[in-house]
Amino acid sequence: MKRNCKNLLARITTLAVLAWLTGCGQSHEKQAAAPLKPPIRQELEKARPQALQLKPVQVTENTRQTYQWYCAQCHGIEGKGNGINAKLLTVPPRNHTKAEYLETRTDEQLFGAIKFGGLSVGRAPCMPAWEHTLDEGTIHSLVQYIRELCQCEAL
């Protein structure tokens, strides 16, 4: 039963990822019309229950490619925090292979940092918000990918 559930969820995420890929050029009218909304606490709170619901997310080839395409600009292609922008930022990009630090952060905090940017979780603003670029399924899978990179779990 539990297994089935897991499979279903994995499939849903794959679908979501696919939808994101194909939907890239189309869903923008809606986005363009909506006014600017800076990330606020309540939104982060709202995102949390969902974060728990969608927990068993798989890291796919798509996740890795997404990381390489966007995140590697700062975090580096191996996630060591040494991307091409790294030396020029006021706060260095986090090294995603460092277990000592990432153990102290919950998955929800990592999710929040990616979705709403560094500021939203009390971190530096040099970490941009990806909420309008990546869908939630992709962000969850990125959190799992970072857990793979650090080979660690939240304590």
Binding site: C74, C126, P128
Partner: peptide
Amino acid sequence: TFSCISCHQSLNLAGKVRGGLS
């Protein structure tokens, strides 16, 4: 607010170049 400077070189108020390169 938007972290533009993390990836783009721009000028500070004194006219000095700063910012990311990607």
